[in-house]
Nucleic acid binder design. Sequence first.
DNA 1: CTGTTAGCGCCTTCAC
DNA 2: GTGAAGGCGCTAACAG
Lengths: 328, 328
Amino acid sequence: MSPLTINDIAKLANVSSATVSRVLSNSDKVKPSTRQKVKDIIDSQSYIPNHFARCLAGNPSMTIGVVIDELSNLFFTEIVEGIDAITCRDKYSLQMAFSQWIPEREDFVIRNMLSSHLDGIILAPTSVNAKAIDLLEQSGIPYVLLNCEMEDGKPFVTGDNYQGGKLVGEYLSKQDMEQIIVITGFDSQALALRYKGFIENYDGTTPIKTYRNISTFEDSNNICDILINDDEINIKKTTLFVTNDNVAIGIITRLKNFNIDIPNQVSIIGYDDIKISKLCRVPLTTVSQQITQLGEEAAKLLLDLISNKDTEKARIITPKFIKRDSSL
Amino acid sequence: MSPLTINDIAKLANVSSATVSRVLSNSDKVKPSTRQKVKDIIDSQSYIPNHFARCLAGNPSMTIGVVIDELSNLFFTEIVEGIDAITCRDKYSLQMAFSQWIPEREDFVIRNMLSSHLDGIILAPTSVNAKAIDLLEQSGIPYVLLNCEMEDGKPFVTGDNYQGGKLVGEYLSKQDMEQIIVITGFDSQALALRYKGFIENYDGTTPIKTYRNISTFEDSNNICDILINDDEINIKKTTLFVTNDNVAIGIITRLKNFNIDIPNQVSIIGYDDIKISKLCRVPLTTVSQQITQLGEEAAKLLLDLISNKDTEKARIITPKFIKRDSSL
DNA sequence: CTGTTAGCGCCTTCAC
DNA sequence: GTGAAGGCGCTAACAG
């Protein structure tokens, strides 16, 4: 049997569908007794209104879209937790999609979401110039960019990446070692800022070498072999600044398997402070982005935009340096 | 300006809305030249069809719902990855909701999803008797239950929990120690089966004690204090069977902070094989549920049900014992 | 091949 | 308070 409609309920209650609709939307212009009658029937038939019809007729969809790169990076799962913590209070549903760092996928899922007329969208864009951002802007629907800074008034929430890099630079300025190696990922605004903050505020004399495009957990294995063979980190006292905890943890695990002493031989500093950073083989010194708060802030900003509240559209969260066992 | 409709496009192209609709749905009954003309206009106006209207008119929503307990348990994030890996191929979107182990929330989000007329739902129920399961069954929409076994023909995908417990029982039967302590979570079918499998197949003489309702990462800290104070695990050689990696990793971290030797003083066996189990302070011996496969299988089954394919509705995945460093 | 015509289920004026 | 009627944007017959 096909699901009941508002008309079925109306007939059963001997009222018009308009009255049922009023009951549904808690309009106050219904006589208490009819309201009760209708409600009873709705319950007894366990009638569920058709979401599409309501939205077509102009109701908000009460769902917000979240587009992130991937779920396997703990960074993003914590973001989502933060978002849900806020949005679920107001009974919003979450529609999720993963861009897998691929601009075409990002584009596709954003278009998809736009056609679904969600009430708002949170996007962690694959790049600051992503076409998806333009699509959002043109669409006119409320949106928030996550993990990037915009100069043109577009709403965003991010950690202060320059500041985070600076914290690491200052920390290392006070230390002695034979070499510093920075291991960073694909070219992105966030990583570039971390790097800049680090370089501009490192005030020592140790030579610095940089490896780029090391992005995934899997990459960390390969880079370890290079670090040992080419950079002799098992002989020279080395500090590794890895601009992403996910990779840093992979490296720690790999180096431990080679029996390399962390932190005395190789000292490692990560970035993000994902939950497992304190749990891994050697608890990781890192820069905390306060990830859950990042997600919460994005959600709050989006809700503000949805309700047309006048608020600060550029929200930057200050990072904290967290000293653990992986560094001296 | 409000978004363009199919009629706007029709006018611009000098055709009827029906023709535009045909172009949209790739119907072959359109003259190539008109098709091209319409397509050009659609592109140039970057027109996006209204999802609600399409669905109201009978199109499938192309989105499937996923209801899990929480995202912070890595077990579920891997499940979702598995699901997305399958469903994204067919361009499905994912609507996600978190029950937080609360039946009322579970109920609410399921109702929500039912009103949204999703094409299918994957639910990891809070319990085998959850009312939400009845709602799904009554609704008539395709669904798959995750992480539980049903006897009444309802479609489900789960690991073989009895078998997993058995693997641990057999493994420990060959070992000597002063005490075995099982640490398990809230009463649930899956955990009960793991326990049963373990007990019925443990063939040794070591006394076994059990702690229940230890479910979250946070709980692991408290239980450690009890284990040390009451059970003297720092003195007696102990084996811990923790029926959930998340908790096991918390315990490892805590015990390491107390400088307890793992595995020589305390040997620990987990369950699930979440990704970080091999990365934590002491790589964890555990039972692999092949989690991603679990998610993939659930997605495949759901897609089969959606397309009315005749398939096996009871899918049980065989677990594997994984020996790592946390046990002898 | 293409246009016309009904709905899909609900909400919202506008009368009564 | 309540009902009737039109419309939200699109699809699916049915004609032509």
